[in-house]
Design a protein around this nucleic acid. Structure first.
Lengths: 232, 232
DNA sequence: TTCTTGTCACCTAGGTGTTAATAT
DNA sequence: ATATTAACACCTAGGTGACAAGAA
């Protein structure tokens, strides 16, 4: 069995509609997809991998920008607009966890982190990154493959393969954030974005309770000198 | 078979008498011990590890400092002084390459780097670092262990174990550099010490030929404002 | 108008020798 | 006198969103 790490954070993002940046060079996911694994054979070899499947066959587009606050995605609008049918998808790539293959004992003894996984919108990418269409929604999937030592292992491919899906990790691929609240939550929770915080650094994560409204202090005092406080 | 990477650099250090810093928290080696491996069974599992054995049973001490230049180890002195018998050694630790165990194919497809290995002088270290006595000389050793799938694999321990020794990687463990030329060669060749260079950054490694006298430009203009050019 | 790209300041994370202070 | 320690400035390496400019 598999347990998603940082589920509370994923839930918080998911509630707002998670967005993940895609770039030509490849961008990591945040939150990072991390899991705890239980119940493997400690002595057997396993491959761990991820792939990304379209959630629907729709293409999305931003709503008319909310001019006074420059946020492209108005707070009072609860969902994206459907802009048409999804762009044709190339066959999806997979990302093998770089430690693969490894023994069950190794995988289980600590959290497995897919922090080397990068997302790109470059159809010609040759860095082995995951290629996604911007403005489309995706569902990350996690797969465990038992490395069968038997000679005719192909026959058992079905039973040696197990897939885990966490719906709270769904996201929209974007080249720039659409929902300002997603931006603020990323800034507040990703250590690498600390430079953009303007709230008390102690507020996160120490004083953060999962139930609480996230990051209003960060949002209220937007860094952008052009923007006015805006209507929420 | 195994091939030492950066052999030219190792030779250059070895000619001066390589020194490696040991600290309480643990210090990486420079140069890093890196090898290319050939002739493994691509499908078999191997463990890769290193240990360090005393080169002799001597304890060393610095020569009287060369006062005008503050270097503790005079340039015209070609060797260390023997200060007595070696301190009692605790049973030596080993460092497993963190990718162990892995398939032969994985080990052979790229340079194997022991850049996570750290040296410490803290006898009570509980970070799994290699414990060495300062002012003693050591010989790094590289071991390859074939993971024998047979049930009675202990019986074959001898033949499943292979050791490689590169004499040019010998060094003296120190808490502070003794030979100023070693310091200068570290500064010139270790990217992390670039802040202490005062020669043209282009001089290294681009214009560096293995045969050339190393780093005279860096040495001539010592950073230390107290020191005078000194006698070499 | 909407979306994408490239550059940037600002971070995290951690590896250097230096230096002054301390220990032995 | 010699050896060790701890704090430090200065690097490498690379992950952030902001922003201005460009593309569609």
């Amino acid at each position: 069995s598999v347990q998603l790490e940082m589920k509370a954070l994923w839930d918080e993002f998911n509630q707002l509609g998670t967005e993940m940046i895609v770039t030509k060079a490849g961008r990591r996911m945040f939150p990072t997809f991390q899991v705890k694994i239980f119940g493997m054979d400690p002595m057997a070899d396993y491959m761990l991998l991820m792939d990304f499947v379209p959630v629907d066959d729709k293409r999305y587009r931003q709503v008319t920008p909310c001019l006074p606050c420059r946020a492209r995605y108005a707070f009072h609008s609860s969902s994206w607009l459907v802009a048409g049918k999804a762009d044709p998808a190339t066959p999806g790539r997979v990302h093998y966890h770089p430690d693969s293959p490894a023994k069950g004992a190794q995988w289980m003894k600590q959290i497995v982190s897919f922090d080397k996984l990068k997302l790109t919108n470059n159809l010609l990418d040759d860095n082995g990154h995951i290629i996604l269409n911007s403005m489309h929604r995706y569902q990350p999937r996690f797969h465990v493959v038992y490395v069968d030592p038997r000679k005719d292992s192909e026959k058992y491919a079905e039973e040696n393969f197990k897939t885990f899906v966490f719906e709270e990790t769904r996201f929209t691929a974007v080249t720039a954030y659409q929902n300002h609240r997603i931006t603020q939550l990323k800034i507040a929770s990703n250590p690498f974005a600390k430079g953009f915080r303007d709230c008390d650094p102690e507020d996160w994560p120490r004083n953060h309770r999962p139930g609480a409204l996230p990051l209003m202090s960060a949002f209220a005092r937007s860094r952008n000198p052009v923007s006015s406080p805006a209507h929420q």
